[in-house]
Design a protein around this nucleic acid. Sequence first.
DNA 1: ATATTAATGTAATTAAATTACAAAAACGAA
DNA 2: TTCGTTTTTGTAATTTAATTACATTAATAT
Lengths: 281, 281
Amino acid sequence: MNIVQTVKDRLSDLSKNEYKVAQQVLLDPEAIIHVSTATLAKQANVSEPTINRFCRRIGCKGYPDFKLQLAQQLAKGASYVNSQIDDDDNVSTVTDKIFSSTLSALANTQRTLDHAAIEKTISYLKDARKISFFGFGASASVAHDAQNKFARFTTPAIFSDDVLVQKVAALNSLPGDVIVCFSHTGRTKALCEIAQLGYDNQATVIGITAKGSPLAKYCHVVVSTEVPEDTDQYMPMASRIAQMVLIDAIVAGFALAHGEEIKQQLARVKAGLKDSRFPPQ
Amino acid sequence: MNIVQTVKDRLSDLSKNEYKVAQQVLLDPEAIIHVSTATLAKQANVSEPTINRFCRRIGCKGYPDFKLQLAQQLAKGASYVNSQIDDDDNVSTVTDKIFSSTLSALANTQRTLDHAAIEKTISYLKDARKISFFGFGASASVAHDAQNKFARFTTPAIFSDDVLVQKVAALNSLPGDVIVCFSHTGRTKALCEIAQLGYDNQATVIGITAKGSPLAKYCHVVVSTEVPEDTDQYMPMASRIAQMVLIDAIVAGFALAHGEEIKQQLARVKAGLKDSRFPPQ
DNA sequence: ATATTAATGTAATTAAATTACAAAAACGAA
DNA sequence: TTCGTTTTTGTAATTTAATTACATTAATAT
């Protein structure tokens, strides 16, 4: 169980004093794992039994169980660090920092995903007559990758770098068609224009983007990767990696939602490509 | 502190009964974090104070501290799992498995990278007159992404999906030009053909691919991501994610190798794109 | 063989967590 | 608004878990 997320999700379920405990937990979870019921009760200005009640309310057996699970969750999150690249870093250091930072971003995305939105996305894609993928700049290759993944299924999947072809694709999307737009910030003007064209055409618009962004206004569902992007000049956009892994999950969910017929399709594609490769030694 | 390792390292420091406790801990560390001194003492056939003595002997404050640190360590280790997707998995489970598996692959790549090969790669790219990127299937979007990243610098960077344009680019690469080929297995025939065209033309060929593969024969340097690819039908190719992060590291190394002038270039590009986005709210 | 040190467990003690119960607060219905 | 019911809350009591004290036993060194 992700304790911090559960606490956040259940704030509205809590009583007045349990809420005070929750606030203390969210304030400094790292410190909490080391303190007694007596200490936490004092900090939160509640009685000791309220601590126990809070723990049971969110699904733990008691306070020791709560502390243990919190510690485990925090330890998972702490495996990955976010670093800056310095001008005098050597190649090994740079490489290590970039990998660690990417791992950190991915772990964070994993923790914060909106699963209901993903399910809704899969549901739309499953019933789509045609799917068009759009992305600009760093997100262009994500859109390209998504098209490549969906090309293994029979639902038509479209991607183009050509801005006119993109507009045609958006204008040509009707009810029953799906448009998928990738943008970390959701502030790219050209992409918002595409999304609006599709939206106004009654196509279903899926945004892999930031909630509340200009792009999100033209989306029927938004899935956000919640990557805090580093503005360091050398640091790459980890969000595009997170978007790609998210698409991997969506593709797998799409395949599962279709059931047995998909396996045969995938097997057919794989077999058909066999001759384009040298055999393994 | 890595509890399990510390226990193993200090077995020879332990008394006869403390050794019995250690054995029980190493037998099933996952279970230990949930049991009381009384229970563990019974399992190890020692007294309760011996449990406490064991904990203090290995450097913990007492048994709760020992359990907490053990739990944290186990949670860190548990981040790196590789899973199969089952037909009855729900979307949350699928998503979690794919993220975890990707994290595992990335962490593995991070640990096994050949830093000398990366340095050599950066050196070739730094001096390149022109860079062409090639990839097929899952690696196509990686090549696309790489071109996009290098497009921010002044060295000409080329990518195309069009197989004829690709051949032209390879035939048109001369000494001083660099060809970068992406392929996890290095067994894609079309890609090997491209690499050979460039190699025979005296262009420098960089392979982000498997060592000893057919493609590697036509490469001046090979950087491998060492991702054991799962043959599960639903599991995505994590290697392309690893390749992308690797390119991130190479791009950062390239930028650092160029020094101060690059910052101005990057700043110029960023400023020039500002108007293509809506301002942040 | 004897003295010293270390290990050990029983019993006692302390600390931490949980339960019981009565009072107070909050909520809903008339 | 009042009253009855339910929920929340904290004090006190109780239980559980962990630690300490002390005497005995075992191991080691002279």
